[in-house]
């Protein structure tokens, strides 16, 4: 039997919002270590990797490893039925063909349960090599969302250039060109408001704006976001999820032909 109880149910609601624009369906792989999900969008240009550690749940039981194929559109409809204050429990029998979501109101005066059919997904799993990135940039997640939204008006591609001075985001198209430069924060008084750059070597890469904008649907999960870049390898955009895990997005660069 599998059962995972999350006191802060709103986190799962936010995770749903972070996944459903990019993915239609995905396999939730459950083990005694926790819940993992890895899936590429239909165009195989981006990949989402979610990790929720068992110890982050109020109660977590996984008798046998379980992979639950879910239609994320349906799952999103069910999670919309949960209030932000609800405790959310996910449970399934071993080799079941359905999963049940239970929403408990904080004072237990309302308990809802929703049963959803599972899908057989032949998920291809990609090996993501451990990489020592040339540049990592940590910045406020709201800032990154704003930059992606503003610059995607100018072009379908965004160039992210990181040097020791700072990081520059640029986009150009029919109406013109936009450049946004962020300097490394001088004093880091409020950690999550800071722009922190670690640079081994300067990097400049081009990415499709539409995927970057999809990634920023995870903004509500964390006050800060971390971008990792190396020449000619996929960008990593990582949002921590409180003390339970993270959601990581990988995006293949556009390279001059």
């Amino acid at each position: 039997m599998f059962e995972a109880r999350l006191l802060q149910g709103s986190l799962l609601k936010k995770v749903m919002e972070a996944l459903k624009e990019l993915l239609n369906e995905a396999a939730w792989d459950c083990s005694d270590a926790g819940i993992q999900l890895q899936a590429m969008d239909n165009s195989h240009v981006s990949l989402v990797s979610l990790n929720l550690r068992a110890e982050g749940f109020d109660k977590y039981r996984c008798d046998r490893n379980l992979s639950m194929g879910m239609n994320l559109g349906s799952m999103s409809k069910i999670l919309k039925c949960a209030s932000n204050e609800d405790i959310i429990t996910i449970k399934a029998q071993d080799n079941a063909d359905t999963v049940t979501f239970v929403f408990e109101s904080p004072d237990q005066d309302k308990v809802s349960d929703y049963e959803m059919k599972l899908m057989n997904l032949d998920q291809e799993h990609l090996g993501i090599p451990e990489t020592d990135y040339a540049c990592t940039i940590r910045l406020p997640s709201s800032e990154f969302a704003r930059i992606c939204r503003d610059l995607s008006q100018f072009g379908e591609s965004m160039v992210i250039s990181c040097t020791k001075e700072g990081v520059r985001f640029s986009a150009t198209g029919d109406i013109g060109t936009g450049n946004i430069k962020l300097a490394q924060s001088a004093k880091v008084d409020k950690e999550e408001e800071a722009v922190v750059i670690e640079m081994q070597e300067p990097v400049s890469l081009t990415f499709a704006c539409r995927y970057l904008n999809s990634f920023t649907k995870a903004t509500s999960l964390s006050k800060s976001v971390q971008l990792s870049m190396s020449p000619e390898v996929p960008l990593v955009v990582e949002y921590k999820i409180e003390d339970i895990g993270h959601v990581r997005y990988y995006l293949a660069p556009k390279i001059e032909d």
Partner: peptide, 14 residues
């Protein structure tokens, strides 16, 4: 113009 790459050029099927 820059050409979009596929992730599979970077990550191998495990």
């Amino acid at each position: 113009t820059p050409v979009q790459n596929d992730l599979k050029e970077f990550f191998t099927l495990a």
